[in-house]
Nucleic acid binder design. Sequence first.
DNA 1: AGGAAAAATGTAAGCGCTTACATTTTTCAT
DNA 2: ATGAAAAATGTAAGCGCTTACATTTTTCCT
Lengths: 339, 339
Amino acid sequence: MDETKNTPTGQVPTLADVARTAGVSTATVSRCLNLPDQVTEKTMRRVMEAVDRLGYSPNYSARALAANRTNTIGAIIPTMENAIFARGLQAFQEELHQSGCTLLVASSSYEEDLEEEQIKTLTARGADALLLIGYHRKPRVYEFLEKRKIPTLVAWAFDPEVSRLAVGFNNRAAMHELADLVMGAGHKRIGCISADTVSNDRARERAQGIRDSMSAAGLDPKMLQMVETAYSIENGEMAFHELMAHAEPPTVVMCGNDVLAVGALRAAAAMNLRVPEDVAITGFDDIELASVAPVPLTTVHVPHRRMGQFAAQALLDELNGKKPDSIELPTAIYRRSSF
Amino acid sequence: MDETKNTPTGQVPTLADVARTAGVSTATVSRCLNLPDQVTEKTMRRVMEAVDRLGYSPNYSARALAANRTNTIGAIIPTMENAIFARGLQAFQEELHQSGCTLLVASSSYEEDLEEEQIKTLTARGADALLLIGYHRKPRVYEFLEKRKIPTLVAWAFDPEVSRLAVGFNNRAAMHELADLVMGAGHKRIGCISADTVSNDRARERAQGIRDSMSAAGLDPKMLQMVETAYSIENGEMAFHELMAHAEPPTVVMCGNDVLAVGALRAAAAMNLRVPEDVAITGFDDIELASVAPVPLTTVHVPHRRMGQFAAQALLDELNGKKPDSIELPTAIYRRSSF
DNA sequence: AGGAAAAATGTAAGCGCTTACATTTTTCAT
DNA sequence: ATGAAAAATGTAAGCGCTTACATTTTTCCT
């Protein structure tokens, strides 16, 4: 091994190589890179020349170790597979990029324990802050995050009751609003295809929104015909068949998200049911799928991009010691043809 | 600051804290964590107890710096926004996770320079290896990668002519096959909506596949009516309108991907054109959208998940010094209703 | 039981960077 | 010109880990 030669070795150049080439100390090089206005213009030029000449780029692990921050923000989303989180995340990452932060994405496959593991992994990898989806997780996870002092933001949900930093929307109220429209149209037998409500608070809140509306309309919320299943088109189809096999099948099927709704749509077509004449169907999220579905979906539009941007901003503020406020974003009903 | 107390400080525990608590050296702790069979069972137990008690988890930056590897693999995809890459990437990451590797995702927005920047960033962040989409990039980028000795794999494309490690499919041949079907149906006026063919080799190859087929069918490939635009439903609509405004509009519009095709479909509907009777439309990729589109799309099915799995496997092999082979995956025409 | 080989453990030198503190250079009012 | 304050730069001590090498302990053959 060649130790500290006077010329850079054939290896990847280090900051020391740059310093040597430019004829300055390592501290000065570091300052050129991180605190440019503490340095003479002339020095800066010399150093930058050396950087270019050697093709130097800093080793982030070393930087992270020395500075005790990584400029990395982690996000753990339930799935990358369908488009629910894609758009928001893209905006989130664009916004972070502007501030020189890198996004580290992990997915939990909607599994609570896997999410916990991923949180551990991302913090071990030095994520300075974390974006998490929804509120529901074990207390010990929140304790861990607090002990480690990792700024954390909850997105895709907003609960005014909880003081935790959040950028999201009120799932319950949004679904309530849509359900009110449904009730207003005279539907009495309501079906719902939802994700698992035990570990998924967004799903739970959405279902609750339907019940709220039923109560308000004088219907017994216990009469809500509910099927829980994982998000996928196929599962949506199966759930729809299950619902329609009842003695008194629902006249409207409100789905926990657009993916399930598209499945329902497809099952309806297979059963020769006209939508919305024979059975109405609604979605949630307003992903691309919703507007191009065979019967364009009536759904709850969620401002994904803005949510991503605001979330990034809030987390960045938090990291800089400002005290950002939680943000509740408005949703809107997009009335298309499926109801 | 409290330096080296005998009991762990109130801070995040370090490996040294664990060593002290367990009454062993730091080297032993490190071995327990990384080379478990070089260590007595008794020692292991003692150390693990200390790990649990302190809630220790290793600092990856320090580990990366010391060991000169990060167990991180980077992927740079053109976009996270539509679903083209989502499924393959999900499979990629699941496979990596099994081997204890973390995936770092960045997106280039289909911009060559941004991709170059992201490559620099990810290597600076210590990605041990890189997944890149397609072959096309500046020679200096490949030189950089080689100089840095970063194992790199090209996915979503496969060119037998190029020796570079790749896991993908032959875009040109796949589109050729679909185009043959189109020619076989007697179409003479062919339109194509494609992504930018200058910097996107997959798009270029796909377009070339159509021309190949035209030549073979005795048509002049120059007659291909081509519109290039960025991938989005809206752009697909606009491009379709442009195509149909010609004096002799095409009788079939072959799209570079499903997203564009859905846009075309929508524009056709707006123009009261029946698909496929008045104009046929084809897609590429077979993303979810394709099967649920108002007119189910005839498209080229790509085995996204398998591609992701194989890519992970190949890259992992490469990292372990094995010499993996490039893999060409078969594609298939999924004939639905749009042609 | 004795000793050489093998296995387990310990010691300590970095990995490439940041940053507190020390030193040198520049600026500027006198 | 002069010296004090301000600005620029340098020195060197780590950050938390891995790992080559040294040392100690265990194993096992005679």
